[in-house]
Amino acid sequence: CHSECLGNCSQPDDPTKCVACRNFYLDGRCVETCPPPYYHFQDWRCVNFSFCQDLHHKCKNSRRQGCHQYVIHNNKCIPECPSGYTMNSSNLLCTPCLGPCPKVCHLLEGEKTIDSVTSAQELRGCTVINGSLIINIRGGNNLAAELEANLGLIEEISGYLKIRRSYALVSLSFFRKLRLIRGETLEIGNYSFYALDNQNLRQLWDWSKHNLTITQGKLFFHYNPKLCLSEIHKMEEVSGTKGRQERNDIALKTNGDQASCENELLKFSYIRTSFDKILLRWEPYWPPDFRDLLGFMLFYKEAPYQNVTEFDGQDACGSNSWTVVDIDPPLRSNDPKSQNHPGWLMRGLKPWTQYAIFVKTLVTFSDERRTYGAKSDIIYVQTDATNPSVPLDPISVSNSSSQIILKWKPPSDPNGNITHYLVFWERQAEDSELFELDYCLKGLKLPSRTWSPPFESEDSQKHNQSEYEDSAGECCSCPKTDSQILKELEESSFRKTFEDYLHNVVFVPRKT
């Protein structure tokens, strides 16, 4: 048989008469490798580009789960590009990614509803959504962080984005990388972005840091009482949809009607710091009717980097990364020049730590249904340095008659930039024990000054392991946590139920 035959053949030295091919099969003959313009397919066939392209389009058009959109890589027609490569849609070739590779997620039936953290986790790592997304989240724990972890990498949506009755959302900033909504599939009414009845939605994105392009379709905003109209108009300008909307697409009466839409800028007039305090004062603000001013709200939190936005980490279910302080308005003076500047002394802060701070007014709604208010920009203030805590785990070892090696770990709280350490030492008198000992005694162990690591005695271990207080009263049991108490109650309830079950099964009433 021919060298490319495997198993047997019907005619000697003829690659077209093989029972099976050793390498690849091409047009009725066995070959060692697939010549151009053919590609290896499933490690035994040679196919042309049209064959591989037909497989790709067949799966793409069917949208069946589990099928493969075949691509070409290293002269092979394979189910998908290997790690580190992405497909070129024009020629199906796998090309190296520039940075992290995109991950295209194809949605069944063309859309997916995100109504819980669990459903959001199914899209973790996706960068391109081939379909439409509907966000409908009523509640949950730590929602802002969970949504950002699972949806934060999405850069492109081919269909539309719909935010509907998501009472738990305060902001859409968890879509931190969303840059493009194509609108290839539109919501009824030709809408590519749809926001309806979101009672706590206050911000779409921080438009000073976020760009969003909507290729096709219109915007729809109705019944978002805490979303200011200025935020919607800003989205029109940034996304390129200005002029597409009709009169009733953006409701003037049901958007922002319960919001404090600040239209003035508060400026800080005085800032002073110490290692654990920050004193702030800002310019006074009074609405047209000074009785509408209820006070100020001061927001602050630790910020290692200057990239904080107002609604980071917030949701309507209680999660809030900001510390909020309510401040009463100052006494009002008739003389504008003698107006008191409101302020606040922030206490209990960490030394040498940068804080993000902003302040906003708290006002009631005027009778004319106009909203007044003022808010400052987010500023960054760093507390002063102070003395560091003591170095940890000092170790001293003498390696000769004239040297001592000293080692330690950095302090747990540096409280500033540590530039150097101060080492103090003092000579001590020799131990009298060394002169009084009889060095001729056998088995004498000389006193040693070398360091030995501390260890816990058996008594201390027994005390720590004991669940009861000892007789001397030195140790006591740790208080039980809520989960331990709940577990004990469940076990007790189970024992009672099981005992009742045994009584009912074992003891049967005697027939009379």
Rank of each mutant, 00 (worst) to 15 (best):
K103A: 10
K103E: 14
C105G: 00
C105L: 01
L107C: 05
L108W: 13
E109L: 07
E109W: 14
G110K: 04
G110L: 14
T113Y: 13
I114H: 01
I114L: 07
D115F: 05
S116I: 07
V117A: 12
T118N: 03
T118V: 04
T118Q: 01
T118F: 13
A120H: 09
A120T: 10
Q121V: 08
Q121N: 13
E122V: 14
E122K: 11
L123N: 00
C126F: 01
T127D: 13
V128Q: 00
V128L: 12
V128E: 01
V128R: 15
V128K: 10
I129M: 06
N130Y: 03
G131W: 00
G131M: 01
L133M: 07
I135E: 01
N136V: 08
N136H: 11
N136W: 10
N141K: 08
N141F: 06
N141G: 14
L143R: 06
A144F: 15
A144H: 15
L147K: 00
L151H: 00
G152C: 10
I154T: 06
E156L: 09
I157T: 01
G159I: 00
G159C: 03
Y160R: 05
Y160S: 10
Y160P: 01
I163K: 04
R165I: 15
S166L: 12
Y167R: 07
Y167M: 15
A168S: 00
L169I: 12
V170P: 07
V170M: 04
V170R: 04
S171T: 07
F174Q: 02
F174W: 08
F175G: 00
R179K: 13
R179N: 11
L180N: 03
I181N: 00
I181M: 02
G183N: 00
E184V: 14
L186G: 12
L186T: 13
L186W: 05
L186Q: 10
G189S: 05
G189T: 08
N190P: 04
Y191H: 03
S192V: 12
F193M: 12
F193C: 07
F193R: 00
F193S: 00
Y194V: 10
A195G: 12
L196G: 09
D197S: 04
D197T: 07
D197L: 14
N198S: 05
Q199V: 13
Q199Y: 07
Q199T: 12
N200V: 13
L201S: 01
Q203K: 07
Q203H: 01
Q203R: 12
L204A: 14
W205H: 13
W205T: 02
D206S: 09
W207S: 05
W207T: 10
S208R: 08
S208N: 05
K209G: 07
K209P: 11
N211H: 14
L212R: 00
I214F: 15
I214A: 08
I214R: 08
T215H: 13
T215S: 06
Q216F: 12
G217K: 03
K218Q: 04
L219N: 15
L219V: 07
L219H: 03
F220V: 09
F221R: 00
F221K: 01
H222E: 14
N224P: 00
P225V: 11
K226V: 13
K226M: 12
L227Q: 03
L229T: 03
S230L: 05
I232G: 01
H233T: 13
K234I: 07
M235R: 00
E236M: 04
E237T: 14
V238G: 14
V238R: 11
S239T: 05
S239H: 08
S239M: 11
G240W: 15
T241A: 14
K242H: 14
K242L: 14
K242E: 13
Q245T: 10
Q245A: 11
E246N: 15
R247F: 11
D249N: 06
I250F: 14
L252F: 11
K253E: 14
K253Q: 10
K253P: 06
T254E: 11
N255R: 08
N255G: 06
G256R: 08
D257H: 08
Q258G: 02
A259E: 04
S260F: 05
S260Y: 09
C261A: 07
E262P: 06
L266E: 00
K267G: 08
S269Q: 05
S269C: 11
T273H: 08
S274W: 03
S274L: 13
K277A: 13
K277L: 09
K277R: 15
I278A: 10
L280H: 01
E283T: 11
P284S: 05
Y285N: 13
Y285S: 07
W286K: 12
P287M: 10
P287F: 12
P288D: 05
P288Y: 02
P288L: 12
F290N: 03
F290K: 02
F290C: 00
R291D: 09
D292R: 12
D292G: 09
L293S: 04
L293R: 07
L293T: 10
L293A: 08
L294E: 04
L294C: 07
G295F: 13
F296M: 06
F296N: 15
F296R: 00
L298C: 07
L298Q: 00
L298E: 00
L298K: 00
Y300E: 01
K301C: 01
E302Y: 08
E302C: 04
E302P: 10
A303P: 02
P304L: 06
P304E: 14
P304M: 15
P304T: 13
Y305V: 15
Q306R: 11
N307M: 05
E310F: 10
F311V: 03
D312H: 06
D312N: 08
D312A: 04
G313N: 13
G313A: 12
Q314F: 15
C317R: 02
N320K: 02
S321T: 11
W322M: 03
V325P: 00
V325C: 15
V325R: 05
D326I: 02
R332N: 14
S333C: 09
N334M: 04
N334H: 10
N334V: 13
N334E: 03
P336Q: 10
S338Q: 11
S338P: 12
Q339L: 11
Q339M: 07
N340R: 03
N340E: 09
P342F: 06
W344C: 10
L345P: 09
L345V: 12
M346W: 02
K350L: 10
W352V: 14
Y355K: 00
A356K: 02
F358C: 02
F358W: 02
V359T: 04
V359F: 02
K360A: 14
T361L: 08
T361V: 14
T361D: 02
D367K: 10
D367L: 08
D367F: 14
E368D: 09
R369P: 04
R370G: 14
R370D: 12
R370Q: 06
R370V: 10
T371W: 09
T371C: 08
T371Q: 15
Y372L: 08
G373T: 10
A374H: 11
D377M: 12
I378M: 03
Y380Q: 04
T383K: 00
T383G: 00
T383H: 00
D384A: 07
T386V: 14
N387S: 11
P388L: 02
V390I: 06
V390R: 09
P391I: 05
L392I: 09
D393I: 06
S396Y: 01
V397T: 05
S398I: 15
S398C: 01
S400K: 09
S401F: 12
S402P: 03
I405A: 08
I405H: 03
L406P: 01
K409T: 02
K409C: 11
